[in-house]
Design a protein around this nucleic acid. Sequence first.
DNA 1: TCGATTACATTCACTAGTCGGTATACTTCC
DNA 2: GGAAGTATACCGACTAGTGAATGTAATCGA
Lengths: 193, 193
Amino acid sequence: MKTAAKPTRERIVEAASKLFYSEGIRGVSVDAVAEKAGLTKRTLYYHFTSKDDLIAAYLDGRDQPNLALFQRWFDEAEGGLDDKVTAIFRNLGKSARHPKWKGCGFLRTAAELVDMPGHPAIKTGIAHKKRVEAWLRQEFAEAGATGAEALARQIVLLLDGGFAVVLLNRDASYIETAGEAAATLVRAALPVR
Amino acid sequence: MKTAAKPTRERIVEAASKLFYSEGIRGVSVDAVAEKAGLTKRTLYYHFTSKDDLIAAYLDGRDQPNLALFQRWFDEAEGGLDDKVTAIFRNLGKSARHPKWKGCGFLRTAAELVDMPGHPAIKTGIAHKKRVEAWLRQEFAEAGATGAEALARQIVLLLDGGFAVVLLNRDASYIETAGEAAATLVRAALPVR
DNA sequence: TCGATTACATTCACTAGTCGGTATACTTCC
DNA sequence: GGAAGTATACCGACTAGTGAATGTAATCGA
């Protein structure tokens, strides 16, 4: 039984996560991550074989929590399917107003590593988005929406459009506009009541 | 009398444009740009005060042509407003299938320069997206669509969502899905025929 | 004893930006 | 018309610093 204040590896990923997310991957040195984690670079390299390895670990660690957050927002919302989808955007918009918000780490990583399409971190990003989409598809199918696959893709597109646009112009209200578009599309796919 | 093969400054911006777009800003050194332009770094620094200056010039040079391309696709399309909007996405999808395609330079720059929100290049990016949105808004208003402002924003969101998603997963068909969503939204905003 | 960790030096490639100087052409003044 | 000055455009070599990654020897704790 390990009381484990917190495993070193985990602490490193945590430090990397904060720094990479807030300053970008290329903008953060391995030294900086080691310092933030409170240990030596040498120790960091004991746990990770390279910076790329660390980058991959950073995104691996964000996959599950990010999806869970979306699911919580959806599940906790009252009302119909359109309201539940709108709730995701509403909550995302609220997050985007915090000064520390810097868009979607997965999308930003794809932008930064644009010349290494096979990078493990990119694959993690693709898998994450696929999981979000698959979850939405299932929710839509269960609710009896027509064209659940296409609808799920469209919602993902609006979500990521919101991430991208607001990262650029810093006007979080665009995310709410995306939410309205999403609601319109959901309602159009719902059986007439 | 100067036949002017092509002004040096222009050649530099052209070289920077190609390199920055295909490999990312942080991934390209000033030396690399100079070499691509066929001159010395010293000369490059004669025409530009800094790399940041060069980055700004790169995006300045993309603003007008990018918008013009969208407008051409829209204008040349046959059919109603929904068909014309769909045409933008269809053409964009076609572009995205070329191996050199790397998403939207403006959005990617925002992702790379996430820790310098006031950077001139970011401002250029914001202005560019505003211009696209304003153009769409006017087209929609002229066509008598209700809520032209919101609709224009929603189309921009789908456009940028397509850029972001396809940059990550490299599946250009998402852009066509975005086009279908856009068409649905446009039709919903059009007066009943 | 052994896995984890540290201090610290080191390698090597690369990066933004600068120094000092040259070649050419246009202007100005006598 | 010619000398002197001035602006433009250019370059080779350099500085000073940062990057990822490694080497090594010593230490800590179970």
